[in-house]
Design a binder for these strands. Structure first.
Lengths: 336, 336
DNA sequence: TTTTTTTACGGAAACGTTTTCGCCTTTCAC
DNA sequence: GTGAAAGGCGAAAACGTTTCCGTAAAAAAA
């Protein structure tokens, strides 16, 4: 099966390469008869255009880059589902890069993408990232960027998030309504937009209901291997909390792992709620009360927003801020 | 920030474009002094080569395609992790496509990839796929293909799998040693290489230990919304099994969902083992005895094999068959 | 009829690289 | 001192498209 190209088709049909090119793209400059001849032969010879030749000429790649911290995580996995689905609908291709929360990696990937490999980028920033020059550089190189979930306030670009503040508030309020008097907050990487706002929601709810708010109750766990130890200390110290709100899925399983050993029974001794998109949340013992993010929709909306930006001819692109609501799913881990 | 290209660099330095190109690639034809001048300026002006121009010229894309049924699944997610990690090491880029188990989608994606967008493809076939012409076409178009997990016997290409037969045997044998006398097998899409071999292992183990083997004990569930119903029928009918072996992660949670309602207690009434890579397996009640696949390693080895093939200059490429061992992790769901 | 417009197409340039030739100096062996 | 080899670089072709410009014939308008 020798590769066939546009010139090959042209030769077979005794017409010029430009005519073939136009015919394949249904140009109105070409007669219906010729269009049919060209398409029939292309079909017959299984012609596939060379994507990079065409990208080079048009300076449009029909490709987007997706940059996420990880993928073995139900939020990101489902967001990716949403993005990919929308990409297929619009005939875009998706390059994916994992940063594993590393700033170095993120910066390195973005730098490479400045070369013109993609038309746009969808990203959720790495936990390590606190400086954003690399992102601004990408935008300055005329690559569209849309953030989702972990956004970057300092940069002017479209953002798609969930209502983190309200969700943090609602989660805390739910614990309060279930009778908790002393609520701790388990979180990590507090400089991220997501965790920061969730914490603010938590603080506000505690304040509104006259519950104690103190640094002692906020546990920021940034080293995976020390998390269990830190939480154990909190749960067994004096002034133990009777409610616990975990801000990320990664943290949601820790209490299940350590509480049995500590003789703490959920929900009797400690009511627990967490952000989580895990399908198994309902099958844990006790089943986990969770804030569930609309992950697929998050991905879909993010992709849609990026494609909107890319189709725009104008240079003046209105930046938008899309906020989707998360859902409180009440199960047994917060039962009275 | 205006885009700078090779000609721009050449102009600035008063040398030719070809010299710049060679200098950037450390050609021995260029003096060290010139190389340094070029690289310094490139660095200063933040020059990034246009990847598609270079791909076009070299007919090498430094890009691979990854085609998987889904990603919100701990096996595929971790395999992807392994692939991506290896890709970054080798400076390859990864395009990812989800088939959602659809043959149509798989065929459509492969057809597009014939155009030369990628140098090679890593894939795990969709559940719907029973015909393989589209894959052979891709190979005939000179795109390297390496399969993992769900491979395609009919096609001559490298394959990276786990020891499905032995794992199926070991899982069944474990149930037998825990005292099961009548073991059922919960599976799906039995035409796939993976499920087929796991079932063969199950059958062999039953036969070796003189346990009954019958079609009534093998439950192939291909419609998600009917699975619970089918399994309920099996578990409540006459001649109920006292052991259950589920062949895929997707099926591993069903018993946890329905057994409580049926008054069946795991492991007392029914011992249960499943293929699963879920991190939460140990936190379920009872904790789940599982066959755990070396997912990350699977991805890594697959990518390595593909890159080996791609670096080969020779046309005669020895196809290899790499088999990694899965691990039996004994927990409470098969306790005596 | 003549002039203008439209239709349908061909030739060649262009996108940003890499690579093939070829050329001029310098170095080295004899 | 001569010839060969090596070092260092430039001009131009090439990769496979798309697009700009041009033009001949047919159709429409005058």
């Amino acid at each position: 099966m020798d590769k066939i190209d546009i010139k090959g088709l042209a030769r077979e049909l005794n017409i010029s390469a430009s005519t073939v090119s136009r015919a394949l793209r249904d140009s109105h400059e070409i007669s219906q008869a010729t269009i049919k001849r060209v398409k029939d032969l292309a079909e017959k010879l299984n012609y596939q255009p060379h994507p990079y030749a065409s990208s080079l000429r048009q300076s449009k790649t029909k490709t987007i880059g997706i940059i996420v911290p990880e993928v073995a995580n139900s939020l990101f996995a489902n967001v990716f589902n949403g993005i990919e689905s929308e990409a297929q609908n619009n005939n875009y291709h998706a390059l994916i890069y994992l940063t594993h929360e590393s700033y170095e990696k993120e910066a390195s990937v973005l730098k490479h993408l400045q070369g013109g490999r993609v038309d746009g980028v969808i990203m959720s920033v790495a936990a390590e990232t606190k400086d954003f020059k690399h992102i601004q550089n990408l935008i300055d190189a005329d690559i569209q960027v849309v953030f989702f979930d972990r956004v970057c306030e300092e940069i002017s670009a479209s953002k798609v998030t969930i209502n983190d503040f309200e969700s943090g508030y609602k989660a805390t309020e739910h614990l309060i309504k279930q009778g908790c008097k002393r609520i701790a907050h388990l979180t990590s990487s507090l400089h991220l937009s997501t965790t920061k706002k969730r914490k603010e929601g938590y603080i506000k709810a505690c304040a509104d209901y006259n519950l104690p708010v103190s640094d002692a109750l906020v546990l920021e766990c940034n080293e995976d291997d020390k998390t269990e130890q830190q939480l154990t200390a909190l749960l067994t110290g004096k002034n133990k909390p009777d409610g616990l709100f975990a801000a990320t899925e990664k943290l949601s399983l820790i209490p299940y792992a350590i509480c049995p050993q500590l003789g703490i029974q959920i929900p009797r001794d400690l009511k627990f709620i967490s952000f989580s998109n895990m399908q198994v949340a309902g099958l844990l013992t006790p089943s986990l009360t969770a804030i569930k993010q609309p992950a697929f929709e998050l991905g879909k909306q993010t992709a849609k927003e990026l494609f909107r930006q890319l189709e725009k001819k104008k240079k003046i692109i209105p930046v938008s801020n899309i906020v989707l609501p998360a859902e409180l799913i009440i199960r047994d881990s917060t039962k009275k």
